[in-house]
């Protein structure tokens, strides 16, 4: 039986009822030693509260997912993120992604078992791309987000972006578009794309980068880095072609609520989930 006959037979479906998949808004919480912090350009870090409370607030506001970036430096405290995930997953019933310091399959397993739905792999993917393959084979690509930190290295008519590691300090020579394609081929279920030029600036997404990556891969792309106002979120979707937008400080410090962000996106004709 073909899809067409399914479609014709399942009354009472009226054309135009479906509005389609919603574009997602994802607040990102930087977590260090079990506490939420937000780095501006990864240097000036301020404390913005308890992860469970912050996550619950975003859930109430209608966040579509929540992402934690674990920036715990000391290996002694690496397990604190597991407790954070457990606590959040017991109170907030939307998808949770955790990134930061994930290097081996056991890191992935422990986070998923603690209640994370997806894990973000960044540096480990750069140094060992096979790890992405192994992780998606083991846990399914739906659980694997590859984080790509890109910086513009050539401007003009043929701009180029390269992958950087170590908070944007170390270049790798890898072309961002080629890398994104490779990661999708290796089983990334989603790409979290951060412009290292824009991160922390509040000048808006690097739309050219976002659009170039979104138009080159078939997996969903989350735009990140540089959001300073709600119009930036709209631009990330409409001009950058992103499937989801990630922001931190505009939400953390109460400049805007997720609800306000969704209203602005709706006004711009973008399909969002209304809660």
């Amino acid at each position: 039986m073909t899809w067409r006959s399914v479609r014709e037979s399942q009354t009472p479906v009226r054309k135009g009822n479906f509005m389609g998949l919603a574009k997602r808004i994802i607040p990102c919480l930087d977590v260090r030693d079990g506490r939420v912090v937000k780095g501006v350009q990864f240097v000036d870090i301020r404390d913005a509260g308890n992860p469970v409370e912050v996550a619950a607030r975003y859930d109430e506001q209608g966040a579509d997912e929540i992402t934690f970036l674990d920036i715990t430096a000391s290996s002694d405290n690496r397990d604190t993120i597991l407790h954070v995930v457990e606590d959040v997953a017991s109170t907030v019933f939307i998808p949770l992604t955790v990134g930061g310091g994930i290097r081996v399959l056991d890191d992935v397993r422990r986070l998923l078992n603690a209640g994370a739905d997806k894990v973000g792999i960044n540096t480990a993917a750069v140094f060992n791309p096979e790890f992405v393959k192994e992780a998606s084979d083991h846990f399914g690509s739906q659980a694997i987000v590859v984080s790509i930190d890109a910086k513009q290295v050539e401007s003009g008519d043929n701009p180029r972006w390269e992958i950087f590691t170590h908070g944007g300090r170390k270049g790798t020579g890898l072309d961002a578009l080629e890398w994104a394609r490779k990661m999708a081929d290796y089983g990334a279920g989603e790409i979290l794309l951060t412009s290292m030029d824009r991160d922390g600036t509040r000048d808006g997404f690097d739309l050219a980068l976002t659009r170039a990556v979104c138009d080159t891969v078939d997996v969903p792309v989350i735009a990140s880095g540089g959001v300073g106002n709600l119009d930036h979120l709209v631009a990330g979707i409409n001009e950058g072609h992103a499937d989801a937008v990630l922001a931190a400080s505009i939400f953390h410090f109460g400049d805007y609520t997720v609800q306000q962000a969704k209203q602005r996106m709706r006004d711009a004709g973008i399909e969002v989930r209304v809660t």
């Binding site: 009822n17 998949l21 279920g189 138009d215 969903p220 989930r273």
Partner: peptide, 12 residues
């Protein structure tokens, strides 16, 4: 543009 796969997110 092609619909991205996986179908990921909030749908009706």
């Amino acid at each position: 543009h092609q619909y991205t796969i996986p179908h990921m997110g909030w749908n009706q």
